[in-house]
Nucleic acid binder design. Structure first.
Lengths: 247, 247
DNA sequence: TCGAGGCTTTGACCCAGATCAATTAGGACG
DNA sequence: CGTCCTAATTGATCTGGGTCAAAGCCTCGA
């Protein structure tokens, strides 16, 4: 290990995802109870956090870094089915083996809760159950949005869609709305982008080059992206210009 | 209207989806409370139940028949993002406009709950919230399964996947496990199947013909399907032979 | 019995994206 | 400062599924 993973927050009070994760609605007492069943784990970029089928002894939240949820066929074809960003929840209460592979894409820190105590707590703590329902409904919406991308968009539109999703998310984190000029780093390799979009990595590369040539994006290095005009990007994504934001 | 929609059940006690819908875990008191805010509506095949963006004054369950959830781009490309079968839930508590089009594929009966009272009830009735969480998690799993189909499977595998999902569901309703010979009716037109699978209707038609020619399925008319060997079908779908069943 | 209109099937041809194959660009490390 | 190694780009070619077009098949209504 050449780099040190970011330090885990010492207590929930200082946690960067305090107000977005499963625990967002918990009061001080509930938080104190959560503290007794939680622990932090770090994974390096590239490490597999969970294999599909593995027994899970915890559920938890991504605190920092990026992880992916992927599904694989016997012949090796793989499809990403979720992109896990800080505050996203991993694991399904009530199920004891992982349904998908979870892989750290960057160095990540996870806040883990021992599974059984967490399940018990969920039964008695509506704040947790309710927040989890909200988050799951949001993920379901995201998954459905993604089904349109996978099923009906062209390669160029797919890339533009992915870029605009990442750009929008980054902007949301910074509490701004994504308009005009937006700058961000891609949290994924070309191959991971291909797995997300149901494309090959060559096609991803070609389409990114094409978008660059057409001035829709500006690249510095392979990961650092500038979007001069967010509206233009969304147009390329084939979304109506309200950004498809729900709620 | 030439056919009469199936009669709605008179009371929850006789409801065919009593033990599978959002209300599955409710006790007699809770059911009584639900009865005060519920009403039935029927729609004919082809009718649109909700337009994306419409204000929703209810949430509810499909009691009988089949409906679809679809998303459409400005140029008309459409992708189905959900197939609603009896006991499935429609609507998102906390959101007041529909995110997707809901269209009746056959004549359907819906059990509707007035939205605001239902939301209030959810806040006080863990049985409902918990069941809804379970159902949403199941739908999320189904959506992710579907992302693999859309992103990585060939046209032939897509058709086989859809057929095996329908066959499996039909078998589950009849409380059996889908093995060996299975017989069912397709609840979808070729076009709807295409929208589900991210294909054109011509490709759907061609692949169905091919599967028929190869003896994977037997057709009587356009809708009635016999699968002589379920394992063979699952092989064609590219699933490992455990059927990908989770939990 | 006949026709109209909606599905569905089938054929011919084409193209977006896959596949195969080099080549290049960046680090990390001796 | 070269040299490995991995990620990314780019080119050449192939093909699965789309597109366009024409029948075929049912059902319903007159």
């Amino acid at each position: 290990m050449t780099k040190h993973a970011k330090l885990a927050p010492s207590a929930c009070g200082e946690c960067p995802i305090r107000h977005r994760a499963v625990c967002a609605k918990c009061n001080a007492d509930e938080l104190a109870e959560l503290e007794t069943i939680k622990y932090y784990r770090s994974y390096e970029a590239g490490q597999t956090v969970l294999w599909a089928g593995d027994h899970m002894e915890f559920v938890g939240s991504v605190v920092s870094g990026v992880a992916t949820l992927t599904q694989t066929m016997e012949d090796g074809r793989t499809q990403m089915v979720g992109l896990l960003l800080p505050s996203d929840f991993v694991g399904r209460p009530g199920r004891d083996s992982a349904a998908y592979n979870v892989v750290a894409t960057s160095d990540i820190v996870m806040c883990c809760f021992r599974k059984t105590p967490f399940e018990n707590m969920m039964a008695n703590t509506p704040h947790i159950a309710h927040r989890l329902l909200q988050m799951t409904l949001d993920e379901l919406d995201a998954a459905r949005e993604w089904m349109l991308v996978l099923g009906r968009k062209t390669a160029r539109e797919k890339i533009a869609s992915l870029l605009s999703i990442i750009a929008r998310r980054d902007a949301t984190l910074g509490m701004g709305v994504a308009t005009g000029r937006v700058v961000f780093d891609l949290p994924l390799t070309r191959e991971a982008m291909a797995d997300y979009l149901g494309l090959t990595l060559e096609t991803v590369s070609r389409q990114i080059s094409a978008l660059r040539k057409d001035g829709v994006i500006v690249l510095e290095g392979k990961r650092h992206v500038t979007v001069p005009d967010m509206d233009r990007l969304m147009e390329e994504a084939g979304d109506d210009n309200d950004g498809g934001m729900l709620v």
